[in-house]
Design a protein around this nucleic acid. Structure first.
Lengths: 349, 349
DNA sequence: TTATTAACCGAAAACGTTTTCGAAAATAAC
DNA sequence: GTTATTTTCGAAAACGTTTTCGGTTAATAA
């Protein structure tokens, strides 16, 4: 086994059997104009020689790569790694490979990576935008090349492509309403960065829930965190600041679980009791949130399902392109639900 | 921008400038035998036409794909997603793309995925073995094709390739010794599946630490968990069983953090106090372990660094191959350290 | 037996590059 | 003005497939 073997090609098989490359190719692809006998011979030899078609040659000829590109802001993240898993699991079923790139929340990198993927002639792209992305030329380039593009979670409404999202506004509304329902009167919000649509929508849902329930909206109760690599620290920082600024806050709706957990840690260190003093609701339902103490009430964001849906949609569009059709972009909204745990406690009933 | 543009090739540029494809190619690659003038013209036009080399054609011609394959058992896992991040970050610097496959701890899948990657003509493969993998023909096939192969974390010693590991035995010894040092007399072990080398090594480290310190090794104190998707549940299950079997255990060294957290959750529900009644040490240092309460003492396993090291080694070997050389396989052992938190408390001093 | 059809095979072009090698054009040397 | 040299270019082959189309042989029908 330690002998290096030459990589075998159709030509090698053809020569050994004294037939043409054409026939070998056809035999392996089960063309009708090859005799049963030769087909058998070819297949057998192909197997013993361990023939594997050269993907480049195939792709060059057929102009499809059976490969898709995936760009996400961060990999080490419960939600995103679940999405990856969902995408890969579906891709595998359809015989597609996935090239994964991490934009690190940087527009520049994201742009470069799109170029790379286009150069690689991937059959389609799935992307969740970086926080810093405000221009969309790179995405429009994908569309201009008539390549399917699917965005998920962090999307840009303006780009004309399919999108897999949750109803962030509604989910945030539900989360905030939950705080109101259990008796919170003064509810703060730790929001995400300014740009991404879902961060905006969650903020709007929060605001609407307040106003719908006759609670005043107070901008000084809204804290921003970039939700980058340092999310946990940002949660702590914001919590500390909140304690300085306000002593009457009894509930916080926080943009993402990791930040929420940072905040909880800080509160606990400062002697603030959760949920007795402050109730907290997170977002995303990281696994972690179920095992900390107290458990974190949060919105379940179905990462695995989003990944699956994203690939399925991409695949549909790839198939349509092959038939010369072009599907209308579709926006799929997945359901979320509130998961109630000990970080919010009904102080009324 | 909504106009679909034809994908531009060297030929297109050549025709527009009334020169040959050859010259265009050379101009773009800065060959010395092209005049400054034509170089400028070509480059300008290439830019305005947004030319991107067809990776297939390039790869077919140059026989290198600038792509590597990565196979890991699970993606949604703090350690592994950190490794991915480490690999991708390095690969990006060197202009390599990473195709990620998830073996789901299945040998069959892993084997298929290796075939796929070989068919894709990746320039190298990085792999962490599935628990179920006991045969290595598929790996030897990579080697036989003279393609660099680097294994990390879950390795097979017998396969002749570079490896990036930690000293599992030593780390486990350190973890167990810590329990002994703080006064534990009856120490259990939740070990991983039977096959993977690191699961074996951790067990051996545990055992050696006991014997070196005059504590009896009792096989009935060793519990097995598969450490698959249900790790948390397995931890709970084992904890429950342990309470039934033994009432004198005062410390546990657990194969991986997630299982440890499951066990801790179960213990807390059963009213067993940590660390007063039982001290617990985990393995891997999941982020989670720092935010739960009590914090989990654990062994830090440098995932990001392992990923970086794995790619660096692979890259070295790819470069060597290009020069016709063939490096000797190298085994790199990264340092681990014990992170002491509240789940183990010194009951002596 | 001959004409017709079906079964089987292969030559060749194409996909888009890279690279070798020889030729032409421009310049330099004499 | 001729020769030698340098600069610049392009034809062609190659990478390994797929697919079209025409050709040859064998089988069938007339």
């Amino acid at each position: 086994m330690a002998i290096y073997m030459k990589i075998v090609t159709l030509k090698d098989i053809a020569e050994q059997l004294n037939i043409s490359v054409t026939t070998v190719s056809k035999a392996l692809k089960d063309y009708p104009d090859v005799s049963k006998k030769t087909k058998l011979q070819v297949r057998e030899l192909a197997k013993t020689l361990n023939y594997k078609p050269n993907a480049f040659a195939v792709n060059l000829r057929t102009r499809e790569s059976k490969t898709i590109g995936l760009i996400i802001p961060v990999i080490v993240h419960h939600f995103f790694s679940n999405v990856i898993k969902g995408i890969i699991s579906q891709a595998e079923k359809k015989g597609y490979l996935v090239i994964i790139l991490q934009s690190d929340e940087s527009y520049e990198l994201e742009k470069k990576q799109v170029e790379l993927l286009l150069s690689q002639r991937v059959d389609g792209v799935i992307i969740s935008l970086a926080n810093g992305t405000a221009k969309y030329d790179h995405l429009n380039e994908i569309i201009a090349q008539d390549k399917p593009l699917v965005m998920f979670d962090k999307i840009a409404k303006i780009v004309k492509c399919s999108k897999i999202i949750i109803d962030d506004r509604k989910a945030a509304y539900t989360a905030t309403k939950h705080l109101i329902d259990i008796g919170c009167k003064r509810i703060a919000h730790f929001r995400g960065a300014l740009l991404p649509q879902n961060s905006i929508d969650r903020f709007l849902g929060y605001k609407k829930a307040l106003l719908d329930n006759n609670l005043p909206y107070d901008p000084s109760l809204v804290y921003i965190c970039e939700c980058g690599d340092m999310s946990f620290e940002e949660g702590k920082k914001n919590a500390k600041q909140l304690l300085k600024d306000h002593d009457d806050v009894d509930g916080i709706f926080i943009n993402t679980d990791l930040v929420a957990i940072g905040a909880m840690t800080e509160f606990q260190q400062m002697g603030v009791k959760i949920p007795e003093d402050i109730s907290i609701v997170g977002f995303s339902n990281w696994f972690m949130s179920s095992v900390i103490s107290p458990g974190l009430t949060t919105i379940n964001q179905p990462g695995f399902e989003m990944g699956k849906a994203a690939f399925k949609q991409l695949f549909k569009e790839i198939k349509a392109r092959k038939k010369g059709k072009s599907l209308e972009p579709k926006t799929i909204v997945l359901e979320t639900d509130l998961i109630t745990r000990a970080s919010t406690k009904n102080t009324i009933s």
